[in-house]
Design a protein around this nucleic acid. Structure first.
Length: 288
DNA sequence: CACCAGGGTACCT
DNA sequence: AGGTACCATGGT
């Protein structure tokens, strides 16, 4: 995959990759299905992705000398089967694996991931997508798109949001989340918490640092630890995963949140975060 | 019109 | 340590 000649297209040789479940399943919020393909923005690049028999066909608006940024984002080199093989051999996980064929974990930009999940609290995924769409159009920098295509924007930087008035953020429909996003953007922009440095520390240390931010609790912090930093043991427990754990593993009791946390830490293995995403998607897509 | 949504926080007991 | 109200807004 080392193209020496810059091209706007490449083929990622990856199979068993469900773009829909992965891009629109509550990890990232900027992907739209357009004529059978998935269109979004990664960093400052507009991208279109299409599933083919031999892999994923990717197209950008400008020629790319190399595609490692895309392989990293999609985690295209990950051997999915070796991850699924570490899941506990119980009925809920077997059902989840069957229901979530080709579901992957992305590797996102920490700031975009952090800001996005601050906006996610008690919102449905479609609403989070709407809020972030408004936010990007209002405060993000435009990115190059194919000729005749509708405009697209990069996710606003922490500096761009730190300079925004709270009323401007509220105009993006984020309601009470606006002061939290603004305060966190200012702390990131002025260097109080260097997000890049968290790549080099332990999960517990990164967790403690993220929890210092306004609007960031245990759940949102674990989302960033899993979806951006790739800590395999990060395990966000939202209303869906909580429901999955209680219904599927503790149907008779009513375990406390502390009890649940001890359970997930010991039960789901070295790729617990992956197992969590399978439970989440399974609960959200199965018929009630 | 209720009830819920990939929660966090302050404030209670 | 464990409950509860409240935050703003749109989907179902």
């Amino acid at each position: 995959m080392n193209n020496s000649t810059p091209d706007i297209r490449t083929l990622l040789a990856v199979r068993n990759y469900d773009l829909s479940a992965t891009l629109a399943g509550g990890q990232a919020f900027r992907w739209r299905q357009q004529a059978g393909a998935w269109e979004g923005v990664i960093g400052r690049r507009w991208v279109r992705l299409l599933t083919e028999e031999s892999g994923i066909l990717a197209e950008t608006a400008e020629p790319q000398a190399e595609w490692s940024w895309l392989e990293e984002y999609l985690q295209a080199r990950l051997e999915l089967e070796s991850v699924l093989g570490t899941f506990p051999d119980d009925e809920p996980m077997r059902a989840s694996v069957v229901a979530c064929r080709g579901l992957r974990l992305l590797r996102q930009d920490p700031w975009e991931c952090l800001a996005s999940f601050i906006l996610s609290s008690t919102k449905q995924i479609v609403q989070i997508q709407q809020i972030i769409g408004l936010l990007c159009a209002r405060y993000g920098s435009p990115v190059r798109v194919p000729a005749g295509h509708e405009p697209a924007w990069a996710f606003p930087t922490a500096e761009q949001l730190a300079a925004a008035p709270e009323e401007g953020l509220r105009a993006c429909k984020m309601g009470f989340r606006a002061p939290n996003l603004l305060a966190t953007a200012r702390r990131i922009a002025n260097g109080e918490l260097p997000l890049e440095e968290l790549r080099a520390v332990s999960l517990d240390e990164a967790l403690a640092r993220l929890l210092e931010l306004p609007g960031v609790g245990v759940k949102i912090a674990h989302c960033v630890l899993l979806f951006a930093y790739g800590f395999p043991q990060a395990f966000p427990v939202d209303v869906w995963v909580s429901k999955a754990l209680r219904q599927l593993y503790f149907p008779k009791h009513r375990p406390s949140t502390a009890r649940l946390r001890r359970f997930v830490a010991s039960h789901f293995g070295p790729h617990a975060g992956y197992a969590q995403q399978y439970l989440f998607h399974y609960m959200r897509t199965r018929r009630p």
